[in-house]
């Protein structure tokens, strides 16, 4: 059974008559012990979906889902109590996630105190061990440091250590490398990969960066305008995308064409969050759209390796 099983998640804000559709129909299935990418451009609902998993949505949000399960538990009921115990979060900006006026040691200890119930001296040993596990060379010195004395990459490692300290087995990482340099970001991703293997973690990697997906994700889900449009194993997804949006997204990357050629850009705009979408959300911008695409919800298709929602008949070749 998958660790996370979401079907038909919808999240709305605002008035009942004119709601803002932050998330319209997200399906997400994450296997234990894997890193799963949640890919999409801004406004696609990827961060909001992550917040829903964490139970961090504002009270004004109206959430509905056909299934919204974590480890068999209905998250719509128990999200609040799982956050900080089973589910932890790593955010984009590690500097903002750490308190600038407290030493790292104190901040690690605070987390351990509320989660482990160990006596003080043992907590210190555990903190050191966790920092070492995140690849920090001199945990003792880090414990005595203030956040600003550490580089961005080191701060992000501390944040990961804190996530581990909560004892969580599922980590939601929201653009964890966007604020970091490429080489530092690559190291952080390598660390997450290692931790997933060593500690039987599961990670949801929210990102807009295909390089991040390629670098560390076992599988991924592509969102467009609050819909899941395609999901599958990373290699399948990147090498043989099935949904026109995924194809267009990959073709828009600067290394997708030979130098000097024009990049394939996607014309038009994402639909407004107020819009009512009858058919396929991508239809207005899709190069292969047919009349049916604008009228009816596209069927779910599955070729064994990955699944997608599209009216186009898959052709094998």
């Amino acid at each position: 059974m998958s660790l996370v099983e979401i079907k038909g998640l919808a999240i709305r804000f605002g008035s009942l008559h004119n709601p803002i559709h932050a998330v319209r129909h997200v399906d997400l299935s994450i296997e234990r012990g894997t890193i799963h990418g949640l890919i999409g451009e801004s406004g696609c609902g990827k961060t909001i979906s992550g917040m829903a998993l964490l139970g961090l949505l504002p009270q004004s949000a109206r959430v509905s889902a056909d299934a919204f399960r974590f480890d068999g538990l209905n998250l719509l009921d128990v999200a609040k109590s799982l956050r900080g115990r089973r589910i932890a979060m790593i955010s984009q900006d590690p500097a903002a996630a750490l308190n600038p006026v407290l030493r790292i040691g104190r901040q690690m200890d605070d987390v351990l105190k509320s989660h482990s119930g160990l006596p003080r001296f043992q907590r210190r040993a555990v903190a050191e061990e966790l920092l070492a596990a995140t690849g920090l060379a001199d945990p003792r010195r880090v414990l005595k440091s203030y956040p600003h004395q550490l580089s961005g990459g080191m701060q992000q490692r501390v944040v990961i250590a804190q996530a581990l300290a909560t004892g969580a087995d599922f980590i939601i990482a929201d653009e964890p490398t966007t604020a970091l340099d490429v080489t530092v970001g690559a190291q952080v991703l390598a660390l997450l990969k290692r931790l997933v293997q060593e500690r039987a973690l599961t990670v949801l990697m929210i990102t807009h960066d295909m390089d991040v997906v390629a670098e560390c994700c076992d599988s991924a889900t592509v969102l467009y305008a609050g819909h899941t449009v395609e999901a599958g194993r990373t290699d399948e997804l990147l090498a043989a995308p099935r949904h026109p949006y995924t194809q267009a997204l990959l073709a828009a990357l600067p290394d997708a064409v030979a130098k000097g050629e024009r990049l394939a850009s996607i014309e038009g705009h994402i639909p407004s969050p107020f819009a009512v979408i009858e058919g396929c959300p991508f239809a207005p911008r899709c190069a292969s759209a047919m009349a049916v695409c604008r009228q009816a919800k596209p069927p779910e298709r599955d070729d064994g390796n990955h699944c997608w929602t599209c009216h186009l008949e898959p052709h094998h070749g």
Partner: peptide, 11 residues
């Protein structure tokens, strides 16, 4: 070397 490195032809 970071990330995906397909050639244009592959895509």
């Amino acid at each position: 070397g970071y990330g995906r490195n397909p050639t244009g032809a592959e895509v």
